[in-house]
Design a protein around this nucleic acid. Sequence first.
DNA 1: CGGATTTGACCTGCGC
DNA 2: GCGCAGGTCAAATCCG
Length: 114
Amino acid sequence: MEGNRAPELPADGYEWKKYGQKFIRNIGKFRSYFKCQRANCNAKKRAEWSASEPGDLRVVYEGIHTHGGPPSGPDSGSSQGGSSADANRYNLLTQVLGDQTPPHDPSQTGHQYN
DNA sequence: CGGATTTGACCTGCGC
DNA sequence: GCGCAGGTCAAATCCG
């Protein structure tokens, strides 16, 4: 199946259900739409990647995890603690790069395409 | 059998 | 007012 479909998305520890996929002409890239499978969770995930460049993957988290934390936290026991308020920190759009980490401008919360 | 995933069609919003 | 783009939902299918 792994022909030229959706690439491997980075597992964030949450469970997502794909509910749609479309090609965005505005940016000439594919876009997949995911929704949190947890009840009471209005968190959504949006993944977009180039139609030709498999290395260009972009994951954008939209909404907040109102159900608390992930089913399998990567480091549950430290700052995570297991508080719903922790997830509430994501009240804004959290942009996560699938492979590359922005080495500069950490305050860059806006979405700036390449 | 259940759950997950995929594709298509439909609807809404914005621009011109 | 119409057209285009983007977004969402539903149904069908496949795998475990």
